[in-house]
Design a protein around this nucleic acid. Structure first.
Length: 439
RNA sequence: CGGAGCGUAGCGCAGUCUGGUAGCGCAUCAGUCUGGGGGACUGGGGGUCGUGGGUUCAAAUCCCGCCGCUCCGACCA
């Protein structure tokens, strides 16, 4: 994209409402704009980041054997009456009436709907197990939205639902999703720690939340550094394969034996047994949550398949959520400095920015155009008639992993300066060497 | 849902107490000089002061209602 004709409204000053780093930076770097309390419009570069996170989430869900589908945002009240949650959910659920006075709601989650879909089509135990997921907007009418997209009312969530014939199968699905989550967070450049959790309004007795450390987190968390040392993406020996039951077993054991707890479940005695050098604690933000809840919905909603003996069986279910839009804020909380955002390569809106320090100078212009032609959509070309300082400041603010600085000094000999945002390291190189370096 | 506060130009704010017809910085537009970390100068444009009503010769300013937003607490992907 050419910055001169893009809707990337960066701000020098911070809007008054933003309290935390990620919110301030998302507004200042032009990623989002608030349209109502807890509801945001995603501007072009914010949207690119959202899509990049979505892509990684999708790849890992697919790799774990989950099937992508897409359910609507608007749901009929009737389904929620079947599960009994229509009344239980309370004011957080946005209730709507259509022109025929039929009761609808903007979905805060999809257990009822997915259960309804499967009960309409799945008849035999032979068709199980199955895991389905979608990435869809949700609405929860929070009393007090805050922290930008970290706690909005409308948010993008990946939610997956597993259906197994029996408990043993449900455990495998649960572990498989848990592994997919750890892989996903690692690819996003985050250290997420799984912590045993209460299952909350969804019900059930096996549940973990995934927490990343950030000073603005909602709760105090404690964990063993062992979690940070595991490479969830490793292949072969020591790695974990979704399809291998003993790998999943070994993976799950390591996830549940090392100490990890939020403050409400914190056990000082157990904590004391963790070697001091391995103790990690701080504020944590929840970026994912997984639940096993057995036959709660399949039983309440009359979903049964024929078992091997011909008798009806209610499938065992689990649900698995990742806050995709919240992760944009979460990544920024975990990766920024005084100058702005520092995007991990995997989700950066642009791999590189091309900074033309002397727009209108034929040599600089043609060198920039050549670079832009080679990099294409991976690059943001700052072709504005702005001074160098403005371009440096905006590039740092937006956090592109690489900056290619083209100024009259080097351009005469075809040389550019390449800056790595994360380290601040700069080197001067020939144009093509810079392109090679960026990869 | 309890408590507190704010709404004046795109953003950040002053002006409100003590009524007299709206101002500052940044941004923006034109021009000149500049040119490697948010530059300087000159000259412009942009606001029914959230909204409805009331008081008054006169309301951003005083009074009442409503709407929106924010912060603290309890609650949440």
């Amino acid at each position: 994209m050419r910055l001169s004709h893009s809707l990337i409204p960066t701000l020098k000053e911070t809007p008054a409402e933003a309290q935390i780093a990620s919110h301030r930076l998302m507004l200042r770097a032009g990623l989002v704009r608030q349209t109502s309390a807890g509801i945001y419009a995603w501007l072009p570069i914010g949207h690119r980041v959202l899509r990049n996170i979505e892509r990684i989430v999708r790849e890992e869900q697919d790799a774990a054997g989950a099937q992508e589908c897409l359910m609507p945002t608007i749901q009929p009240a009737e389904l929620w009456r079947e599960s009994g949650r229509y009344d239980d959910y309370g004011k957080e659920m946005l209730r709507i009436r259509d022109r025929h006075d039929r009761e609808l709601l903007y979905g805060p989650t999809n257990e009822e709907m997915i259960t309804d879909l499967l009960r309409g089509s799945v008849r035999s135990y032979r068709e199980l197990p199955q895991i389905l997921y979608h990435i869809q907007w949700k609405f929860r009418d929070e009393v007090r939205p805050r922290f930008g997209v970290m706690r909005g009312r409308e948010f993008l969530m990946k939610d997956a639902y597993s259906f197994d014939l029996d408990y043993a199968g449900a455990v495998v699905s649960y572990r498989r999703m848990m592994l997919a989550y750890m892989r996903t967070f690692q690819r996003l450049g985050l250290k997420a720690i799984p912590m045993a959790a209460d299952s909350g309004p969804i019900g059930g007795d096996m549940s973990h939340e995934f927490i990343i450390l950030a000073p603005t987190g909602e709760s105090q968390v404690y964990f063993d550094a062992a979690f940070e040392e595991i490479d969830y993406l490793a292949q072969g020996a020591g790695g974990f394969d979704h399809a291998n039951a003993s790998d999943l077993e070994r993976f799950f054991t390591s996830m549940t034996t090392h100490y990890a707890a939020t403050d409400e479940k914190h056990d000082p005695a157990a904590w004391a047994s963790v070697p001091a050098a391995r103790r990690r604690e701080g504020r944590g933000i929840e970026v994912g949550h997984i639940f096993y809840f057995g036959t709660k919905y399949s039983a309440a909603m009359g979903f049964a398949v024929a078992g091997a003996d011909g008798k009806p069986v209610h499938p065992e279910m689990g649900s698995y959520g990742i806050g995709v839009s919240r992760l944009v804020g979460g990544v920024i909380e975990a990766s920024h400095d005084d100058a702005g955002i520092i995007w991990p390569d995997a989700i950066a809106p642009f791999r590189a920015a091309i900074l033309n320090l002397k727009q209108g100078d034929p040599v600089c212009d043609s060198l920039c155009e050549a670079l832009y032609a080679r990099l294409g959509p991976a690059a943001l070309y700052d072709d504005r008639a702005e001074r160098a300082g403005v371009k440096f400041a905006d590039a740092d603010l937006m956090g592109h992993p690489w900056q290619i600085v083209v100024g009259p000094r080097g351009a005469a000999t075809g040389r550019v300066e390449l800056k790595r945002r994360a380290s601040g390291e700069r080197v001067e190189l020939a144009r093509d060497d810079a392109l090679t370096r960026i990869g």
